[in-house]
């Protein structure tokens, strides 16, 4: 039965209307702003683009953003895999609670997360004397940026792995253990090949979040240009300097990173579906 034959006259015009609305909304809300970012970034011309890009504060912001993401991703990769392994391979009291706790960073506003870290590790927090004694500064320095970014992006890997590892079950691993494989070998030869695409997908999402994080980072950064200013924070500062073109260039850079991430993500999804 062809679906079109069952359509009455009302449904016949409903369909193009719905498609039209969907497409229009996508174009107006997503595509136009995206194109506009690049258009505005180029408004200062190639000279302006080069001038803004070679600005030491901009270069530092780019490096710092990549540096923070570069530390956050491996930390969350290891942490996420451990937690997922833990909750899917063992049953223990508080397992559900642990799974729920992992979602806290999603539920809590990033600004609140930043404030929590600031109050805990700042100059008036319980660790202030200890940190002072060793002359260590966590907040308003790059370790603080990494800490809050790890916090806000930690659920991604776990959330990707848990459903997959639950459905995979433990048979293959148990068989390997019975055949005498060590724990490490089981993980390396059995578990990892099974979860590698989901793991990569989690990494991509973690990276996207780490690169774009604004709220939590803005609380603990102190926005010292050339020191603790990440790319998203730099956009705001450039805008306040009346340097609109510069702000859009920074925004375009972030957008490019995001688009690259999306492309990799789409590829992985396709790969995941094929497996």
């Amino acid at each position: 039965m062809k679906p079109s034959s069952t359509l009455n006259s009302q449904q016949r015009w409903l369909r193009p209307l719905l498609i039209g609305t969907g497409v229009t909304l996508t174009v107006v809300l997503l595509v136009i702003p995206l194109v506009f970012i690049f258009y505005a970034a180029m408004s200062a011309g190639l000279g302006g683009l080069w001038h803004n890009l070679k600005d030491p504060d901009m270069l530092h912001a780019i490096c710092l953003t990549l540096f923070v993401a570069g530390l956050t991703v491996p930390i969350n990769l290891v942490f996420g895999t451990l937690i997922a392994w833990c909750v899917t391979r063992f049953t223990f009291p508080g397992r559900r609670l642990l799974l729920t706790m992992i979602d806290i960073p999603f539920a809590v506003s990033p600004v609140v997360a930043g404030l929590l870290y600031l109050l805990l590790y700042g100059a008036n927090g319980p660790f202030a004397n200890l940190l002072d004694h060793y002359d260590m500064q966590l907040m308003f320095a790059w370790p603080g940026l990494v800490m809050v970014t790890v916090f806000v992006s930690c659920p991604f890997v776990v959330r990707e792995l848990v459903p997959l590892m639950s459905t995979l079950g433990t048979e293959q691993e148990e068989a390997a253990v019975l055949l005498g494989a060590s724990g490490w070998k089981v993980f390396w030869d059995i578990t990892l090949p099974n979860i590698r695409w989901a793991l990569l997908y989690g990494v991509i999402l973690t990276n996207a979040r780490a690169v774009g994080e604004f709220g939590a980072v803005s609380v603990v950064s102190g926005t010292i240009r050339g020191q603790t200013n990440t790319l998203p924070l730099h956009i705001e500062l450039l805008q306040q300097d009346y340097n609109t073109a510069g702000a859009f260039i920074a925004a375009a850079l972030l957008t490019l990173i995001a688009i690259a991430t999306l492309v990799v993500k789409a590829f992985l999804q396709w790969k995941l579906a094929k497996d």
Partner: peptide, 8 residues
């Protein structure tokens, strides 16, 4: 505020 919280 930031200085009170430890911005040096």
């Amino acid at each position: 505020q930031a200085i009170i919280q430890g911005l040096r």
